[in-house]
């Protein structure tokens, strides 16, 4: 499995200031698969994507993409590596000053010397793949949330990346748009022969489309397995997450002092 791995994350520690977010995470993303990374809010899922993209540096451990340690690459090699990655941001992050067409064409114009007619064909193909060929003349502000997400998806795969990362792709979508986007993630991955990483906390939807799931809690991988294994799992953490229970291994209360003391209730009175 290791020889087939596109991304290897080994014993990664990372923290902002003094707060440690990752404390020795180990994950492997094999080629051609769709992998979900789940965890509660603030568990370091997005941080993980930024480590893979080289936007952040781990304080120890390493992230390897296609056999190369990301944080040891120089600026030029890192940018070369990033051209092979695509990332879909939480709310799409479409360039608001450009039309849909120009958004999808952006990377082709920046990174290639393709003639404009060929770019046009490619852009329309990508937009067709997400079912939005008819919107190419619109501005991002004129799109609905679900449509904007799909355009962003078309832009993400504009240069046929080998690794596609999705940061909370289902946030704020209605159920129909949600399953459309989920289906597209699976279909595009298989059509492009890419590897996809979906960071999400939408359990039910992701279980339908992914090949493998990692649960992150407390800075480490708390559980992992195929969708069937996860469904069958009786680990308390997985159970809590799957069923959205309020209290459990993930506590309801932020760590705090004694409640009585905070309210100035003295037992001796």
């Amino acid at each position: 499995m290791s020889s087939q791995a596109l991304v290897e994350i080994r014993d990664v520690h990372f923290g902002y200031d003094s707060r440690l977010i990752l404390k020795g995470a180990n994950l492997t993303f094999p080629k051609g698969k769709v992998i979900a990374v789940m965890g509660g809010s603030g568990s370091g899922k997005t941080t993980l994507l930024q480590l893979i993209a080289g936007a952040l540096k781990p304080s120890s451990g390493y992230v390897k993409v296609d056999g190369q340690v990301i944080h040891k690459l120089d600026h030029k090699d890192l940018f070369r590596m990033r051209r092979r990655m695509g990332m879909l941001f939480q709310f799409g992050a479409l360039f608001t000053d450009m039309s849909v067409y120009d958004n999808v064409a952006f990377q082709m114009r920046e990174h290639t010397d393709l003639p404009e007619e060929m770019i046009r064909d490619l852009v329309l193909m990508k937009l067709h793949a997400v079912g939005l060929r008819g919107t190419h003349h619109l501005m991002p502000a004129e799109l609905s949330g679900g449509m904007a997400r799909r355009v962003a998806l078309a832009r993400t795969v504009a240069l046929d990346p080998t690794l596609i990362m999705y940061d909370e792709p289902f946030t704020g979508l209605d159920p129909i748009s949600l399953s459309v986007v989920a289906n597209l993630i699976r279909r595009l991955n298989d059509a492009l022969g890419a590897t996809s990483v979906v960071v999400t906390h939408d359990v039910q939807e992701s279980l339908k489309i992914v090949d493998y799931i990692y649960f992150i809690a407390d800075g480490v991988v708390a559980a992992e397995g195929t969708p069937d294994e996860i469904r069958a799992s009786d680990m308390p953490f997985v159970h809590q997450f799957m069923h959205g229970e309020i209290d459990g291994p993930v506590p309801f209360h932020y760590p705090s002092g004694d409640y009585g003391q905070d309210l100035n209730l003295r037992p001796d009175r």
Binding site: A53, A55, F79, R82, M87, F89, A93, F95, T96, H111
Partner: peptide, 11 residues
């Protein structure tokens, strides 16, 4: 709106 991060990640 993360457009700048998106651009950086597009190399």
């Amino acid at each position: 709106t993360e457009q700048i991060s998106a651009m950086a990640l597009m190399a």
